[in-house]
């Protein structure tokens, strides 16, 4: 299934756009999605951690994604 992903902060720079679309297998979970994104965008993995939110809720690795979910990638921000 096709999953739409919104990018925040530095993830916009890493993806080069503010939203991307990725093909995730049915029953794929957040861990699957992260692995897939990190393979395509190695810089994402280098952040050491970033938050994945599904429908405005923090998503644990084992959460199963469905096609209607709104997924957001929210990396850490350091400025002050």
């Amino acid at each position: 299934m096709e999953i739409n992903i919104l990018a925040f902060g530095i993830a916009k720079d890493i993806f080069g756009v503010s939203s991307i679309s990725v093909e995730v297998s049915e029953q794929g979970n957040i861990a699957t999605l992260k692995a897939l994104l990190e393979e395509r965008y190695p810089k994402l993995k280098q952040l050491a951690s970033y938050m994945v939110a599904v429908n405005n809720e923090y998503a644990e690795d084992k959460l199963i994604i469905t096609e209607r979910d709104e997924v957001a990638i929210i990396p850490p921000v350091s400025g002050g």
Binding site: I10, Q46, L47, A48, S49, Y50, Y58, V77, S78, G80
Partner: peptide, 25 residues
């Protein structure tokens, strides 16, 4: 740490690199 267990600080640009809009601050 619930949000970000750890961060590689060399990978995240700070304001002097990427800039910041004053009104956001």
């Amino acid at each position: 740490r619930d949000l970000y267990p750890q961060v590689d600080a060399t990978q995240v640009p700070n304001c002097s690199v990427g800039g910041v809009i004053p009104t956001l601050a």
